[in-house]
Every structure is written in C-alpha cells, then in structure tokens.
Design a protein around this nucleic acid. Structure first.
Length: 814
RNA sequence: GCCGAAGUGGCGGAAUGGUAGACGCGGCAGUCUCAAAAACUGUUGGGAGGCAACUCCCGUGUCGGUUCGAAUCCGACCUUCGGCACCA
C-alpha cells in the first residue's frame, strides 16, 4: 500500500489551528523554569532564502524540545528593518524606504509562518517603527548623559558609492565597502562616537559565558590588548611647547637599541619639528601619503618609505640624540602615533633602517651570540648587551627593571594599549533612527528632551545621493527650537548605525507593547539574559561585541542587573549551493517556498537538519531532500496502515522496548548537543525497525501503540505538522506540542547482548555474541575456544590478552 | 605571515582510543505495471581467490611516531574554507 500524505493540506490546517488557539503564546509563568532561545532577527531584504531557514528551523526544533521538556520558552521573531538597502531601493526604484521595508516584512512574515515555528507573533519587534526607535533614541540619550557618547572630528572610512561613513568592521578585504564593494576612502568629519574602549578590559573577560572559542578569539584579536610601557623621549627645542614625546612600546627592554624615532605623517608636531632645509621633502612625502588609500598604506610587504625631519629627540636612558623621521607605517590612531625605532629587534624597523642606512644596534643577544651582525631582526627574549647597567640580564628581567627605572625617574610607566577604537555611530543616511541631538548657536550641543521622543523621520525627505544626510534638505525636520533657550536651532541630520537597533531588540521582546519604557523591568528580570543565542559567525566582532558593550553600559547606568546579554552562543554553519555561499548576485539562491509547496515545511526543516552537523553547514542538494520526504511518507504510511497482532513473542516485545528506550535516549542527547543529523538517523532506524515489526506481527497491539506514541513525540519538534496530524489520527488528545518530552528507562535502553570483537595482534578475526553481563574470565575462555582463534594462534605463544569490557578482546600472539 | 575550522565510499555524512563507512542520496537487481513513473524488497568501499557459505589483502589528505590496537592521540607537511594582518 502506497500511502502518501498531503503536506499542504495538513500544514495549513494546523498552522491555522495553532494560531487560533494561541498555543504558542508565552507567559511569564514563574512556576516553570524559563528558557530564552533567541535567533538573530533577519534583515528585511525582502525574501527569506534557505540560509534563513538554516538559521531558524533547527533553532525552532531545539526550542520546541525545551518547551516539551517543561521550560517556559521565549523564542521570538522580529525584523532588523533600518539600513542602507531600503534607501538604495528608494533611490533606484522610487519606492519610499518605509513602503519597501513594510512590504518586505509582510512577505517575510508570511514565509516565516509557513515554517511552522513556535514564534509568538504578539511579541514581534520591528526596529524601524517609531514605537521601537523611540527607545533606540532614548538609549542614545542615556549613553550621552553617562558620558559614553561624544562628538569628535575624525578621519572616517567613507564609501563614495553608498555616500556614507563605515565602521572599521564594515571595511572588508583590501579596503572595500562591505555592502557595495567600492574602494573605501578617508574623510574628516564631525561624528558621534560611543566609548566602547572604556569597556575594552571587561570585554576581554569571557569567563561567565559559554561561547565558541573561535568567536572569543576573534573578539580578543579585535580588541587587541598589548601590554608594555609608555616611554617619554626628550625634546629640546626652544620654540616648541611640549618638552617630550611619548611612545608606546611592548619592548622597553630594547630601549638601548633605539637608533631612530618615528612619527605618523599626521602627527600634530610634524610641522614644528621639521627644519627649514628638510621642509620641501617632508611636505612632498606627506602629500604622497595622503594619496594612498588605506589599503595601499597598510599593505604588507610594501617597501618602507619615510622622510627625515631634521630634528632629534633624546633617549633619556643613554642620553643619545635620535633622529626623527616620519613614515606611513606608523598609524596616527594607534598608541601615541609615535614609535621608537629598534631595528635589531623589530622586523619593520630593520627594513626601515636598511632602506635609509640607519644604524642597527643589537641589545638583546640570542643564545650563543658572539657579537656578529644579525641577519634578521631578533624578536625573542635573550641576554641584554650594549645596555649600560643592564648588561648581562635576561631580557625579561630587564623589562621589569627598565620599567621600574623610568617610573622612578618620571620618564614613563607601564601601560596597556588596545587596538579597539571607539564606535563611530553616525551615518549620513535617511533610513535609520535619527540621533536625538539639537545644535543651538547659543547653547551648543543640546540633547532632545525625553518627553519629546521620538524624533520622527520626516516621511517626505528627498533622496539625493549627495554625501550628506537627506535629512539636511528637509527644512521641516532640521529647523526646531532649542530645548534650553527656545531660540531657533538645528537638528542633528545623521542617523544611527543600525547596530544600535540590534543592541537591544532582545530586551524588547520581553514586553514589546509597553509605551512608557523600553521594557517592563519585571518581565526583563524574568527572561534575561538570553540562554541560547544562535546565528551566523559573521557578526563576531560587530553585533556580538556591540551588544556586550551596550549591556555593560546600561548596567552601569542602572537599567539592567546582568553583565552579559547572551549566556550561550552557537554559530550554525553556512549553506552553500553550487560551490558557493548563496547570494542574489551569484544567482544561486534556493527559495524555500517552492520546496515547501511541493514537499512540505516538515521536509524542508528535516532536510536542513540532516545535511550534517549544524555548526558545519553544507551543500544544499535537491536529491537529498527527497530522502527526508520519503521517510516522512514512510512514517505516515506505517501509522496509517495500522497494525494487527498475530502471535506475540516476549522476546520480540523485549527487543522493541529496548529499541524504543535506546531511541528516546539517543534523540534526547542529540537534541541537547545540536546533533540533528544523527538524531534523524536514529529516528529513521526506529521507523525501519517498526516496519519489520509491522510485518512480523509478533508484538501486542498495546505495545505497538506505545511505540507509535513515542515515535510521534520524538518527531514532534522536527516535523510539528505531521506529528500533530498523526497524533490526532491515532486518537490522542490535542495537542502533541503540549505533551511532556518522553523519558527513557536506563535499564531498557541498555544493551542485553553485545558483539564481542576478537582481534589477534590487532586485526579483526572473529566475533562473538554474548550477554552484556559477561565477565572477563568467561570472555577470554570463550575466545580461546574458538576454532578461528586456535587456527591463528597454533604454533604461536600467547603473550598477552587485552580485554575491553563490552567491546573487544585482543590476543597478542608471537 | 598569524589564528581558527575542516579533509573518511560515486555523493552528504557516521564512528573522537576498540567491528571504519550508521542513516540518507545515487547505482545495480527484483516486485508491481501493457509500459513508465511512484512505491516496496534485496544489494552496494576497492582488489584477489572460490560453485558456494566464505576467506584473504588494501583502505579515513601525505610522511613519520606513540599504543596490544589510531579516522580518532603526538610531530612534520599538503589542500580547502573562514577570520586577522606594518597595531609598535
């Protein structure tokens, strides 16, 4: 009998019923333990592709599993709805970003609903709506009043095509815009920043969160902590005010090896330190540097360039005069923008010294060194030489002693520097949350009053790609009155980086409707922090770092009482198709809708989980999904065919009980560790076993029904529609999704008989089926009696017998 | 260059110190059919021998090592993917 089920019909039926019955509505019911299972909300690009499903379907399966385990599970969904593509669509197609975004959301919401997830749509969050971005602005004000937001002129990454500023993290590869791929340039602009650097040290502490090592490493590298010392070099120029320049170094033990001194070309003291005879050359060099793109400037393996200023600093340790040069490999934004040149012990400095014929002085001797010139820069620890009173010391000790000395003399101190920069949040764009600031000629920078929030986006802005925010040309928006002095004033025209919106959306899910606060404190306290956060690893140093910063910042402001937003993080892999990551431009996007229409959402969910381990991703295959679809049909026909019992055999019943409990155990353990592929394999094995039982008819009807009940319960998270339909058809009370997760009986799950493998000298030679309770002595005796063993060991001496309980006997014969 | 992940049949993968290839796809053979599709059943790592049940050898990127025993642990290397990259 070839029974097939109709996924379209039953999926629509149950989705409607679940919605009507609100069975997935979440309550803050403190009698159950809570579990906050969050999936990164999607950007409103317009179409949900199979990559989105890969992020969401397995998360939903896991959340459903936790729900059946008795947790009160919050598994919400929303839309990351501000951002450049909406505005680009407006420019190229003449659609208003709001209309474009809302139409996309409508479409995506329908697609998401077809997945059959447990999202409680009453909690949906849309970041571009005023009732949401009002609070994004409110948080900006909180950070501003706490001194964590400031305005400064800064050289910023500028994308000439998108006509906007980019954060460092949005510049990818060889200096290209993350969104459009244009070459990024530099521009000086007044911008708003968040002081994420104030939290650099705390952000390095991952001790209370369970995150993948890979992501933690990426964040550590991004923050880039360096320990060393800040050292002052003397300046003796009558007409120059500062009498010192400080450098940061990680190697104060090499201070006696300084033979030149480097400044960034942008360093403010450069013009003053340039002597008249070198002025022309220095200016020429600076002009050349300006022409370089950021990528060209920082490209590795490039020949060193520079110019001598004609003046000198004093190395206070040995009172030597050291020539000052400028070079583009010294970055103005890192450390103090000044570097001491130690060519003997730094590769870059050595290249520079060779290029410009500067002296190289070895001050750290490698083991066995006898005074010869070193071929390469020696960067390891060693013995100090040519270092005055420190000669003969191991360099690690010298490091400490020199630090003590400079501290005592007031020439410097131990110091820590980070690679992390403050977070630039201004965007010269329309489609974002307006920065709630007013500029008054008299009062200066004035924050918008809380009661005046939200600062609404004017619906009638013009989208001219001019390089300035479209809001600049919207008079009704720009012109306002100063909240302090009530005179005419201008509004800030930039909007916030959308990562500010995603900093806090997971707080809003707890109380999305409340209109006098960003969240309800009691509900927040119940749900937060997020227990499990899943999403792609591409957010490792952006969203995931910003959110951690944001939570720590508002904790210090007193708005929340926890330190980390996401207790556990899991990154799923990437789904690829035809050899590459899916993207619209490559034209290799798999649309889930047609597969849902043809084979059903349950099959798509199942196939995505069957491809391989979730964290590894994998290749989408049209033939692969057929396997899952066939299996779901086999489950259907297995149950719909019914069962008749002929002669009940206790041994067969025992066997089935064992398989049931073994499967419950395996499925439970696999769900706990996100091993969906092996979970499905064991459910398939269970199904195959039941087919055999159905044919053999050798168990009682009641045990058959019990087995079917367990099969459906175990299937419910993966194939919620099919499981619900068969649950009803087998006479169970609605709904399967409100049933408790089955427990296994350890005694029944245990293997009674095991296959004992007999090896001779490590090679498989025989197998023995024995009771699991067999003792070592019995097993060895049995093994030695086997004909095959005798054949292999005759005329040899048995040197050793290794016995591994329940697995193997290895006979070592010589 | 540095950091991280991965490399197993024709394919996706399973097995994380003890039977390599579970489960699925594809292939082959069969059942059903006028025929085909679908479905179902059996079979399927490579090689050699045997009428056969079966037996032997080889085999987890490469080369070494540890171990009674290695896909799994260690060392060196190769390839692919991701991240970072003149950060003093």
């Amino acid at each position: 009998m070839a029974l097939k089920y109709n996924p379209q019909e039953i999926e629509r039926k149950w989705q409607e019923k679940w919605a009507a019955d609100r069975i997935y509505e979440v309550k803050e019911d403190s009698s159950r333990p809570k579990f906050y299972a969050l999936t990164m909300f999607p950007y409103t690009s317009g179409d949900l592709h199979i990559g989105h499903w890969y992020a969401m379907a397995p998360s939903d399966v896991h959340a459903r599993f936790k729900r059946m385990q008795g947790y009160e599970v919050l598994h919400p969904m929303g839309f990351d709805a501000f951002g450049l593509p909406a505005e680009n669509a407006a420019i190229s197609h003449g659609i208003h970003p709001y209309d474009w975004t809302m139409a996309n959301i409508e479409h995506m919401r329908r697609q998401l609903k077809s997945m059959g997830a447990i999202y409680d749509w009453n909690r949906e969050v849309v970041s571009c709506l005023p009732e949401y971005y009002k609070w994004t602005q409110w948080f900006f004000l909180k950070l501003y009043h706490a001194g964590l937001a400031y305005r400064a002129k800064a050289p910023v990454n500028w994308c000439p095509r998108c006509q906007t500023v980019l954060a460092n993290e949005q510049v990818v590869g060889e200096g290209f815009c993350e969104r459009c791929g244009s070459q990024v340039t530099k521009k000086d602009l007044e911008q708003w920043f968040f002081r994420i650097t104030r939290y650099a040290e705390e952000l390095l502490n991952f001790s209370h969160i369970d995150w993948p090592e890979r992501i933690k490493t990426m964040q550590r590298n991004w923050i880039g902590k360096s320990e060393g010392a800040e050292v002052s070099f003397g300046l003796e120029h009558e007409d120059i005010e500062p009498k010192e320049i400080r450098v940061f170094t990680t190697r104060p033990d090499t201070l006696f090896g300084v033979t030149f001194f480097l400044l960034a070309p942008e360093h403010p003291l450069v013009p003053k330190l340039t002597t008249p005879e070198y002025k022309a050359k220095v200016e020429e060099y600076i002009a050349w540097c300006r022409q370089q793109t950021e990528y060209e400037r920082t490209a590795l393996g490039k020949e060193k360039t520079g110019a001598f200023l004609g003046s000198y600093v004093i190395n206070r340790l040995n009172e030597e005069k050291v020539p000052i040069w400028i070079t583009d490999y010294v970055l103005p934004t890192y450390g103090t923008g000044a570097v001491m040149g130690v060519p003997a012990h730094d590769e870059r400095d050595l290249e520079f010294a060779k290029k410009f014929n500067l002296p190289v002085r070895t001050v750290i001797a490698p083991p066995g060194w006898s005074g010869e010139e070193l071929a390469e820069a020696y960067t390891e620890p060693g013995t100090m030489v040519n270092s005055g009173e420190f000669n003969g010391l191991p360099s690690e000790q010298g490091y400490e002693r020199i630090c003590n000395l400079i501290e005592r003399k007031g020439w410097g101190k131990k110091a820590v520097t980070y690679r992390l920069r403050d977070w630039l949040i201004s965007r010269q764009r329309y489609w974002g949350a307006p920065i709630p600031i007013i500029y008054c000629d008299k009062c200066g920078i004035v924050p918008v009053l809380e009661k005046d929030l939200p600062v609404l986006l004017p619906p009638d802005a013009e989208f001219r790609p001019t390089g300035e925010s479209p809001l600049k040309y919207c008079q009704s928006f720009v012109n306002t009155t100063c909240p302090k002095c009530f005179r005419p004033a201008r509004r800030e025209i930039d909007t916030m980086d959308t990562f500010m919106c995603s900093n806090w959306y997971f707080l809003r899910y707890t109380s999305p409707k409340i209109d006098n606060a960003p969240f309800e404190a009691k509900k927040l306290k119940y749900w937060l922090p997020v227990d499990l956060y899943t999403g792609g690893a591409e957010h490792a140093v952006m969203h995931l770092l910003y959110s951690r910063f944001f939570i720590k910042a508002i904790r210090d402001i007193g708005l929340v009482d926890f330190d980390e937003p996401f207790t556990r993080l899991f990154n799923q892999g990437t789904i690829i198709y035809r050899g590459g990551k899916m993207s619209k431009s490559k034209g290799n996007v798999i649309a889930p809708d047609e597969y849902v229409a043809e084979l059903g959402a349950d099959a798509v969910r199942g196939y995505l989980m069957f491809i391989g381990p979730w964290e590894l991703g994998g290749e989408w295959s049209d033939s692969g999904i057929v396997g899952i679809s066939r299996w779901l049909n086999r489950v259907w026909s297995l149950i719909e065919t019914g069962y008749t019992s002929q002669d009940v055999k206790p041994k067969a019943e025992k066997g089935l009980r064992h398989v049931i409990h073994k499967t419950i155990k395996k499925v439970t353990k696999d769900l706990e560790r996100f091993r969906f592929n092996t979970m499905l394999a064991s459910l398939m094995e269970f199904t195959n076993y039941l087919s055999k039982v159905q044919e053999a008819k050798n168990i009682s009807i009641s045990l058959w029904q019990e087995a079917i009940t367990y099969l459906l319960l175990l299937l419910a998270p993966t194939a919620p529609h099919l499981a619900e339909e068969l649950w009803a058809r087998t006479g169970h009370p609605y709904s399967i999704h409100n049933q408790p997760w089955p427990r296994w009986d350890e005694e029944l799950a245990k293997e009674e008989e095991i296959t004992l493998v007999i090896q001779i000298n490590g090679k498989l030679r025989d197998k023995l089926i024995v009771p699991a309770s067999i003792t070592e002595i019995e097993a060895k005796e049995l093994a030695l009696e086997r004909e095959r063993v005798k054949a292999y060991t005759s005329n040899k001496k048995i040197a050793n017998i290794i016995y591994v309980p329940k697995r193997v006997i290895n006979i070592v014969a010589k």
